[in-house]
């Protein structure tokens, strides 16, 4: 469903070439639920943006749902759903349901299918209480649920999420997580998410891609990930070990 072959993206910054991502090769099959980890600036967002067609790779090849994202960007848009945790795709000054109606028209979703889908999503994400509220007045948790619904109204084959749980409280996080599991299980939607929240990885992802310095540093199941460290290590410790490999370890934090 998602395939990259030695994909790379470099930027020229004041004359120097910076490789944000290089030689990235992986394959994600239909129905998989994959988490993408990596320290800040490792190239996760660049990777996601290449998969959505926002950024054109400077080397290698990317395929999503059989399409080249940067060349067939608008065709691909109909088949994938994208959620950015840090910014909304909803219309700020309009009620949530107006944004949904716009999505229906922009994605040319059949009216009947749309109504059924919206009912389903309203129930699953518990949107009922605030569909008439302008988006700017929603709490972050509500807005994120709205964004998720908007990204799924056209029933995409692939759902790509960039830090979907950022800034959310434990209850909101739990709600989003169980919803994502449900979408993946019931509709077979392929899910790829980036996160810094290891709880997301433990509870959601069957497979982990770890990107560091723009390269793929680990690709395997959560079990394999845990096996890279001695038996008793927590997932935090395992990931810290991987992030700091070849670097000075961060100073230990003294409990207060």
């Amino acid at each position: 469903m998602i395939e990259t072959e030695r994909a790379g993206r470099s930027f020229k910054v004041r004359g120097a070439v910076v490789h944000a991502v290089r030689d990235l090769s992986f394959r994600i099959e239909p129905g998989e639920f994959v988490g993408c980890l990596g320290p800040n600036g490792a190239g996760k967002s660049t990777t996601i943006k290449m998969l959505c067609g926002i950024l054109t790779p400077t080397s290698g090849r990317v395929r999503v749902a059989g399409l080249d994202p940067s060349r067939a960007r608008t065709a691909l848009a109909r088949r994938i759903g994208v959620v950015f945790g840090q910014r909304t795709t909803l219309w700020w000054d309009l009620p949530l349901r107006d944004s949904f109606e716009l999505v229906r028209l922009l994605y040319k979703v059949d009216r009947k299918l749309f109504a059924a889908r919206l009912d389903e999503l309203t129930e699953a994400l518990d949107l009922g209480g605030f569909t008439r509220t302008p988006v700017r007045q929603l709490s972050l948790g509500q807005r994120m649920r709205g964004d998720l619904a908007a990204a799924l109204l056209h029933d995409p084959e692939v759902l790509v999420l960039d830090e979907p749980t950022i800034g959310l409280d434990v209850v909101s996080k739990a709600g989003i997580r169980s919803f994502l599991l449900r979408v993946n299980a019931e509709r077979g939607t392929t899910v790829l998410l980036t996160t810094h929240d290891l709880g997301d990885v433990e509870r959601l992802c069957r497979r982990v891609l770890l990107i560091d310095h723009g390269r793929l540093a680990f690709d395997g199941s959560v079990g394999d990930l845990m096996a890279t460290a001695p038996g008793t290590a927590t997932i935090e410790e395992v990931v810290t070990r991987l992030y700091t490999r070849g670097r000075a370890a961060p100073p230990p934090v003294e409990p207060v």
Partner: peptide
Amino acid sequence: RAGTLDTMLVRPVS
């Protein structure tokens, strides 16, 4: 600068 171009680029419209 605001990053809102990204959200336009993922919609199926020019």
